[in-house]
Design a protein around this nucleic acid. Structure first.
Lengths: 210, 210
DNA sequence: ACAACCCCTAAGCGCTTGCTCAGGTTCGGG
DNA sequence: CCCGAACCTGAGCAAGCGCTTAGGGGTTGT
C-alpha cells in the first residue's frame, strides 16, 4: 500500500496514471528523458530506474514513443490548465496576465524535469502524436493572446504587435524549463514574481492598484 | 573550383573551416543535427548529405562528438562576437542594449539552424567540451548584465533585479532559435526590432531620441 | 485445493550504431 | 614516367538498440 518513490526527483502529479507499475515507469522515463534526452535514453535505462527488467516496459506501453506521448500529453494538459485557470479569473487584464505568467513560470520551474521533456522533446514524437500536441500548444498561445488583446481593448495595455508580444511572453516562460536549476539561487516563486513584473512592463501596463 | 553548396539551407559563415571536404561535412552535420537532434543523427546520414561514404567522416574528425564540438565552439564565438560588437559601441545604454538584442536576435533567426544546434545540443558534448562552452556562455551573460548595469547606474533604466533581468533578456533571445521558422510570417529583422522594443520596456528605459 | 489472473523475468532476435582498416584513385613534382 | 602524399571507398566488426517470446511465481475467488 505504501511504496517510497525514491527514484523520482519530483513529487507526483502523475496520480492519474493508474496501474502503479505503469506510473513508476513513466516517472522513471521523465527523469531519464530530462537528463539525457529521448534519443539518448534506452528502454533498459528506464526499466532499470523503475526497478524492473527491460521487458516489463512493454507490458504497460506498446513502444518507447508511446511513453513520451503520454508524458507530453499529460504535461501539456496540466500546463494549459494552469494558464487557463488564471486567465478565467476576475480582475483587470493586468491582474490576469501577471497571474498567468506567475503560475505558468512557477509550473515550469517546479516541474522543470517534466517541462523539459514536454517542451523540448516534441520532435521525437511520431507525426500524428506531434500534431496532436501542437494543437494543445496553440491553445496556450491563444490564451495569452486573448488576455493581452483584452488589455489593449480596455486601454490598460499599450501593445503595437499583439501576436508578436504574446509569442515572446510564452517563449520567455517556456525557456525557464531550459535554464532553471533546483539547486540554483532562485526559487520558483521568485522567478514567477520576477517574470510577472517583466511581462507587465512588456505590455506597457499602467501600475494597477487594488 | 566552383562547387554548389546545395546541401545547406544557409549561406556559409563557415569560411574558417579549412579543408573544403571538412567544411562540407560540418555543414551537413549542422543541418542534420538541427533537423533530428544530435543523438538521432547517424554518421551515415551526415556523410551522405555531404556526398561521401561513412568512412570519409573519420578522416577529418576523430568522432561524431568532435564535429558537434567544432560547431558549438564556432557558433558560440560568432554569437558572442555579435553581442560584444554592439555592446562596445558608443551611445546610451538604451541604444546599446537595443542594438545588442536586435543583432543577437537577428543572428538566432537568420542562422536558426546553427543556433538550434548551438543552444540546444549542449548536453550531448563530453564533460570537458561542455565546460569549455559554458564558459563562453557566461561571457554572453556578462555582456548583457554589464549594459543593463550601466543603464541603471546612469539613471536610464529602472531595474530592481539586474542579474535576473539579464537572464530573462538572454533567455528570450536564445529561445528564438527554437520557434523561428524561415517560412513563417516574420523576417529576422522584424523579430529583432520587435524584441529590441520589448527589452527596452523590460528595463524601464525612458524613451530615447536621437 | 486449485484454476484464473496479473505481473514480471531470462534469453535473445534482427537490426543499426559509431567506428576501423586495407586498399584504390588522383595529382603535383622530379 | 614514376613516386609519394592527400583523400576517399567497400566491407565489416563489436556493441548496443528497441522489442518479442516463452514461461514462472504470487495473489485471489470459490
Amino acid at each position: 500500500m505504501s511504496t517510497a518513490e525514491e527514484t523520482s526527483g519530483e513529487d507526483a502529479p502523475w496520480g492519474e496514471v493508474t496501474p502503479e507499475a505503469a506510473r513508476r515507469l513513466l516517472v522513471a522515463a521523465v527523469d531519464a528523458f530530462a537528463e539525457r534526452g529521448y534519443h539518448a535514453t534506452t528502454t533498459r535505462d528506464i526499466a532499470g530506474r523503475a526497478g524492473m527488467s527491460p521487458a516489463a516496459l512493454y507490458i504497460h506501453y506498446k513502444t518507447k514513443e508511446e511513453l513520451l506521448h503520454r508524458i507530453s500529453t499529460i504535461g501539456h494538459e496540466r500546463a494549459l490548465h494552469v494558464l487557463e485557470a488564471e486567465a478565467d479569473r476576475d480582475g483587470t487584464a493586468a491582474d490576469r496576465l501577471a497571474g498567468a505568467v506567475r503560475s505558468f513560470v512557477r509550473w515550469h520551474a517546479e516541474r522543470h524535469t517534466t517541462a523539459r521533456v514536454v517542451q523540448y522533446e516534441l520532435d521525437a514524437l511520431g507525426e500524428e502524436h506531434r500534431t496532436e500536441i501542437v494543437a494543445l500548444r496553440r491553445r496556450s498561445d491563444a490564451v495569452v493572446r486573448r488576455i493581452i488583446g483584452e488589455g489593449v481593448r480596455d486601454g490598460e495595455f499599450d501593445v503595437p504587435d499583439v501576436p508578436g508580444t504574446a509569442l515572446a511572453v510564452l517563449s520567455l516562460c517556456i525557456d525557464v524549463a531550459r535554464w532553471f536549476n533546483a539547486r540554483g539561487a532562485r526559487t520558483p516563486d521568485e522567478v514567477g514574481e520576477l517574470y510577472a513584473g517583466l511581462v507587465l512592463r512588456m505590455v506597457g501596463a499602467r501600475q494597477v492598484r487594488k
